[in-house]
């Protein structure tokens, strides 16, 4: 694209915004490496005088069970919702039937609803089937309400596979499931990575379902972190260390697979 501004101004602006964007990370890291004696309002921006891990061990002590809850919740939810989204997306893009477009829209709309509008019945039902305050209850909820987005992402992905490939496989006698297993799944490894990363990040970071469906002992890490941050007695170097611990899994995923994360972001943008 032709030039709009001179290069040096552009670099200046980009570096300026980069610093702003990195500022919260700076504060999180700097504060969490300080000891309690060292944190104060006035020296917030100063580097720690020495690297001190006490706030991390303190935070880890508090959050370890919750981190474990989050793993137990996010991993199965991600795997199950990927599988369901994939088969749905395959069916709705490669084997269209009468009304399949409407069914897609019907499912897709579920992605936009504010979850507040289903929470009251949801809790009743989850309680009735004995899954209230359990990790399986949370998994069930994430799988169900992940259906629209995973279906959308896989559908958008499969639309790019030419229909002619399906047709020639059909001529060779392959049916719905055979084509899915032997052709679609191998072709959609990237799709699984993209959707998996997207779902894992969202489920790990999710807060509303987590706080409403689970009680204290089953809280995922985000709820525990919010409790830690809301408490008046917990020092803020510990809160910051807790925030880093809670963010580490998704940040690692982003650092190593950022490309796929961005792909997921684009794939999830609605194309009817």
């Amino acid at each position: 694209m032709p030039k709009l501004l001179s290069k040096s101004i552009i670099y200046f602006i980009l570096i300026f915004f980069s610093l702003i964007f990195l500022m919260p990370f700076y504060v999180l890291f700097v504060t969490s490496f300080k000891s309690f004696e060292e944190v104060s309002f006035l020296t917030m921006w100063n580097l720690p005088s020495s690297i001190n891990f006490s706030s991390f061990s303190h935070a880890l002590n508090q959050l370890l069970p919750n981190l474990w809850n989050s793993i137990k919740m996010a991993v199965p939810s991600t795997i199950i919702s990927c599988l369901l989204g994939s088969i749905n997306g395959y069916a709705l893009s490669k084997w269209r039937f009468k009304g399949s477009e409407w069914i897609f829209t019907f499912i897709l709309l579920g992605m936009f609803i504010p979850f507040q509008s289903i929470l009251i019945p949801l809790i009743r039902v989850i309680d009735t089937i004995g899954l209230y305050n359990t990790i399986p209850g949370l998994i069930l909820v994430h799988v169900i309400y992940g259906l629209p987005i995973t279906t959308l992402m896989f559908r958008n992905f499969y639309v790019t596979i030419p229909q002619s490939m399906i047709e020639s496989a059909q001529v060779d006698g392959a049916g719905f499931f055979k084509i899915y297993r032997s052709m679609i799944v191998p072709l959609s490894i990237t799709g699984f990575v993209v959707v998996g990363i997207w779902q894992f990040t969202n489920i790990w970071n999710e807060f509303l379902f987590a706080i409403v469906i689970t009680g204290h002992s089953q809280h995922p890490v985000m709820v525990a972190l919010q409790n830690l941050a809301g408490s008046q007695v917990v020092e803020w170097n510990v809160q910051m260390a807790g925030a880093i611990l809670a963010a580490i899994p998704t940040l690692i995923v982003y650092l190593f697979a950022g490309r796929y994360f961005i792909k997921g972001l684009l794939a999830g943008s609605v194309k009817g």
Partner: peptide
């Protein structure tokens, strides 16, 4: 610029509150 997208709103809230 994209990094914050991978963070939870809860973590963001903790950092920006300070």
């Amino acid at each position: 610029f994209l990094f914050p997208m991978a963070m939870s709103f809860v973590v963001t809230g903790v950092a920006w509150r300070w």
